[in-house]
Design a protein around this nucleic acid. Structure first.
Lengths: 115, 115
DNA sequence: ATATCATCGTTCACCAATTGAACGGTGTAG
DNA sequence: CTACACCGTTCAATTGGTGAACGATGATAT
């Protein structure tokens, strides 16, 4: 559960959003599986996830019996749920803009090919 | 005019396309200006450009008087022109796909926000 | 002619980001 | 008990990207 070491530009809005989303729909997910879904390394995933925990957006509960080690349930905290909603809205706005830009780019490319 | 050092994943299709496009429409461009237009560093631009030269897609002619140093005209070779056409088509295909994917992603985000 | 200045391409030490093999802990099956 | 599978964590090593610094050149002023 250690953090430190590694810049702060690692946990972008995009990863924050994606991780919160994945955890919300499957809190039993492992870090390896999460890494696979995000398309990044285990190390980076571990770092980002712990950053979210540190920020209080995610709580890592132990499960499987009562003991207190290995294997977590990654649950969004109320603050995490709120943050995820905000991020989703921002993300949508960004994607809309990108979509528009892409349309322009495509028009440009078609123009370029035509003559 | 040296290359080496620096991975091969640096010169992506995207940069190949963009560089060829910029050079085609302005062969007198400097590496600094090219870097600015691509939104990357001078170092990376220099590397990519030399890679294109090495591949025979671009020829760096000297200009300004007859001497043979500093300041080049970056001209696309016939092979470079051909390559640029191909890249443009691929690029267009890719952008169309991305555009579609984005539309889906946006739909997903809207769905996510609505309820 | 000489000095100054702007700009060029090139280089490379430095930093940030990313990776995945390795490790020790834990649940499970035989 | 042993063996195995999977977990989260760590961190040495690699890679990617940067921009200040350098020497060379053309233009301009003195």
């Amino acid at each position: 559960m250690v953090t430190k070491k590694q810049g702060k530009n690692v946990l972008t809005d995009e990863y924050r959003y994606k991780i919160l989303k994945e955890l919300q729909q499957d809190p039993e997910i492992s870090q390896r599986e999460l890494a696979r879904r995000l398309g990044v390394s285990l190390g980076k995933t571990n770092f980002c996830l712990n950053a979210l925990i540190e920020k209080g957006l995610v709580k890592a509960d132990n499960f499987k019996k009562n003991p207190n080690k290995t294997r977590y349930l990654y649950l969004l905290t109320p603050k995490g749920i709120e943050e995820k909603i905000t991020l989703t809205q921002h993300f949508l706005q960004r994607k809309l803009k990108e979509h528009e830009e892409l349309a322009k780019e495509i028009e440009r490319l078609r123009e370029e090919i035509k003559p």
